[in-house]
């Protein structure tokens, strides 16, 4: 059944590389803190800003902490941030989009005009506005980014609902007297999930990036949290002495976003119904 999709995925070798890296990322997020040689806050005496060596693969930071361990600990934070921000966005977008698309009329007008307004504030600025209300911090950044990327989901969901609700099976369910809630959950929702999943994959990458960016400017995770963006912010002060302080957290972040983007791209190629034939 999925042969066509599998063949499409298989055609590009880079997809395997990206999938492998994402798998490694998830593994590290789950088990990393147990595997890391040091805890995220352990200060090794007498080794402040030492360059990469066999004892400290990524070197140490300004407080003598092992950077390799901190990058590993940071993986869990990054994955949780990216996924939960996207989950918030997808959930809110689904609720709004389903209501707007299914019920139409006034609901549609109100929700979509609200969405238009949100879309006319640049995403990161919208997140910053929300942080202004909630205050800086890791959890607030997740909420802010979630709300910030909600309008994209609302749009996609509404568009898909409009198409699905004209289908015969929905008309049939309605003719059988099923209530709206059941129709939405049983018939509409499963049929709009394709585009939502594709968008979610691509938005995870954007969420990871934006969360790190906000931590980088000091609005997100605060030291000593081993979050990659916050680590890069600390690294700025020691750029002259310690290139590894910038390169390893930065590289981890870039590779993460890159592999999620590659996967999202091929997922879109595979799942987008317009490219099926």
């Amino acid at each position: 059944m999925y042969r066509k999709q599998w063949n499409k995925f298989r055609a590009k070798k880079i997809n395997f590389l990206a999938a492998g890296f994402v798998a490694l990322l998830l593994f590290t997020a789950l088990f990393g803190p147990r595997l890391a040689p040091y805890s995220a806050r352990h200060q090794v005496p007498g080794s402040v800003l030492t360059s990469p060596s066999s004892a400290h693969w990524f070197g140490t930071d300004s407080l003598g902490r092992d950077l390799f361990s901190r990058v590993i600990h940071g993986t869990r934070i990054t994955v949780i941030m990216g996924v939960s921000a996207t989950f918030i966005a997808a959930f809110l977008g689904l609720v709004q989009g389903l209501i707007a698309g299914y019920y139409g009329r006034m609901w549609d007008t109100v929700i979509m005009r609200f969405t238009d307004i949100l879309l006319s504030i640049p995403g990161i600025l919208l997140a910053i506005t929300i942080i202004a209300v909630l205050g800086p911090g890791l959890n607030n950044v997740v909420i802010a980014i979630g709300i910030g990327s909600m309008p994209q989901f609302t749009r996609v969901v509404r568009g898909s609902v409009l198409a699905v609700k004209e289908e015969d099976y929905v008309t049939g369910a309605r003719a059988l007297g099923q209530n709206d809630f059941l129709i939405i959950v049983r018939h509409v929702l499963p049929n709009i999930m394709g585009p939502v999943i594709v968008l979610a994959t691509l938005r995870v990458a954007a969420a990871v990036l934006n969360a790190a960016a906000l931590s980088f400017v000091g609005l997100g995770a605060q030291p000593p949290t081993p979050e990659w963006g916050a680590m890069l912010n600390e690294a700025r002060r020691y750029m002259r002495q310690a290139w590894w302080y910038t390169v390893f957290p930065g590289g981890a972040l870039a590779l993460t976003v890159l592999s999620i983007n590659i996967l999202g791209d091929s997922l879109r190629d595979i799942l987008d119904p317009r490219t099926y034939y």
Partner: peptide
């Protein structure tokens, strides 16, 4: 297209820091 994919994925502040590291410092 590969370079473009990398361009889409490298955060602007990471790129900025790498440029600073190499070209400025």
């Amino acid at each position: 297209m590969m370079v473009a994919m990398i361009g889409i994925s490298v955060p602007n502040f990471v790129l900025g820091m790498l440029l600073m590291l190499y070209f400025s410092l």
